[in-house]
Computed example of a mutant assay.
Amino acid sequence: MVKYQGEALDRTFAALSDPTRRALLARLGEQDSLSVSELAAPFPVSLPAIMKHLDVLTDAGLIVREKTGRTVVCRLTAQPMQQAVGWLNHYAQFWSDNLDRLAAFVEEETWPTQPSTPIPQPNHQALNVQALRSRAGSARGRKKSTPPGRKPRS
Rank of each mutant, 00 (worst) to 15 (best):
V2K: 10
E7F: 11
T12G: 07
L16N: 07
T20S: 09
R22M: 11
E30G: 13
Q31F: 09
S33N: 14
L34I: 09
S35Q: 05
E38C: 04
A40W: 02
F43H: 13
V45I: 15
V45T: 14
L47H: 01
L47K: 01
P48K: 02
V56C: 04
T58F: 08
T58A: 12
D59A: 04
L62H: 04
R65F: 01
G69T: 05
T77S: 02
Q79N: 02
P80C: 01
Q82E: 07
Q83P: 02
V85C: 03
G86D: 15
W87S: 04
W87T: 04
W87H: 12
H90D: 14
A92R: 08
A92P: 02
W95N: 12
D97K: 14
D97E: 15
L99H: 10
D100A: 14
L102M: 12
A104R: 11
V106N: 07
E108Y: 03
E109Y: 01
T113Q: 00
T117I: 03
I119N: 00
H124M: 14
L127V: 10
A131I: 13
A131G: 07
S134D: 12
A136F: 06
R140L: 11
R142M: 07
K143M: 12
K143Q: 11
S145T: 12
S145E: 09
P152Q: 01
R153P: 09
